[in-house]
Design a protein around this nucleic acid. Structure first.
Lengths: 237, 237
DNA sequence: GCAAAAGTGTTAATGCTACACCCATGT
DNA sequence: ACATGGGTGTAGCATTAACACTTTTGC
């Protein structure tokens, strides 16, 4: 039997299959706190609860492509740091039918985050408060925590945990900053993700000794005090 | 519209859907090197290449349950440390049809690993050699590296990378050891995963100071020299 | 007694924390 | 001049690496 003959005889419809979706955790740092963009559901199920933007994976696109499509469609963003987080596959996680959802996070610099919010007015910004046990509350500008749809609270909690874990070993912090940034801004990102203050001199040295930053010689503008030097990310890893 | 009415009208068959599978990276430490169990494919596609044991996710079981079912069915193992690794979703990763595969690793102590191999004689043991760039070669007992099916080489490479990354921050090393083990055995596991020797006194102290080990007062037997004390894992996290 | 590996003490190096201080800029 | 945050030097602390050494067991 040749491989071609085998393929002709293969029947992919022989068994019931789950639907496959992606959900996007659109994250940035707003006012020193991690924040995400949520969508109020106006249909069942979980109507009037808040959900992560997401969508079904099409038969002819990869998971990563689906995540980027949702990013472009629902958040009007051309590109961003997108990374797979975890796949949620409990049988009853969606009451409609069996849906397996691959959670991604998309990390955005604050300016792009604000632009997404302006371009897609149905998105709601919520700051993420991480409790001691890791649970995450999504709080809008000045109100009570939003009730979350499906298992999206778990997704947010896992995303925050992953951010903390990867902070020292990857370049995610840079994804949350513009191309040029001050060391203070970088420290603010670290502090927001870790949820605790860091020592300034120690942080400076750790970053500069790491060899992943290059000074640009430029300085920030618009301050009413001494402007800080702007750095940019160097190399990869 | 009530939620029940909405659910009645929802049509889950409206769009083509990918199939969802799980693949299992059955890992242990054999002779001081990480090893995995592979299956030679005797059908198309990728006939005569080696693949990870896997299976399709049934409509009424969670992803984790599917992974455990594959573990029980294909490797005849009642239980093990099972953890989700990553979800692979390239469009053309399987030539038959669109299949999204959730990779899991299952970590086994050497004795249980050997038992699985004995109970399921179609499994082939291969040691995993990690190259400098992270690529993984699967070598059987005394032969050339096995050609791997689908994107399973990527899965193995990612599994090894994840093991290294989680070694210091989780209890995965203990999952690769029996209930009672010597500090030397624990160090051997760490060295096999990291691929480099570690300093003995430093390792001892780091482990004992970590507070996650409890001495049992017992000692190993059958040595031709001074027997080491047996420890057990303490607590969680 | 000898071989082999378990287990321990001591020192050196490293990285991080804390604190104090100086520097540069806008008002 | 002054307020404000940027940026730097130094000292202390904790953790880790390295080496030498002693101890215990089987043969």
């Amino acid at each position: 039997m040749t491989e071609a003959a085998f393929l002709d005889g293969y029947d992919p419809a022989a068994y019931d299959r789950p639907s496959v979706a992606v959900d996007l955790i659109l994250t940035s740092i707003v006012a020193g706190r991690p924040a995400a963009l949520l969508l109020r559901r106006d249909v069942h199920p979980h109507r009037d609860r808040w959900a992560l933007p997401g969508g079904f994976v099409r038969i002819d696109e990869s998971l990563d492509d689906a995540a980027r499509r949702v990013l472009a469609t629902k958040a009007r963003m051309a590109d961003a740091w997108v990374e797979q987080l975890y796949t949620f596959g409990a049988v009853d996680r969606d009451p409609r039918t069996r849906i397996v959802s691959v959670a991604y996070f998309a990390l955005l610099p604050p300016a792009r985050f604000a632009a997404a919010l302006a371009a897609a007015p149905d998105l709601t910004l919520a700051t993420l408060a991480v409790a001691a046990d890791g649970a995450v509350a999504a709080q809008p500008a000045g109100g009570d925590p939003l009730p979350l749809a499906f298992d999206h609270a778990d997704m947010l909690a896992l995303a925050m945990r992953r951010l903390r874990g990867k902070l020292d070993h990857s370049d995610i912090a840079f994804a949350l900053l513009p191309d040029r940034f001050t060391l203070r801004a970088l420290q603010d990102v670290h502090e927001a993700i870790l949820g605790r203050p860091l020592n300034k001199p120690a942080f400076r040295r750790r970053m500069l000794d790491g060899g992943r930053l290059a000074p640009t010689g430029e300085r920030e503008t618009g301050t009413s005090f001494r402007p800080a030097e702007l750095f940019r990310r160097l190399g990869t890893r």
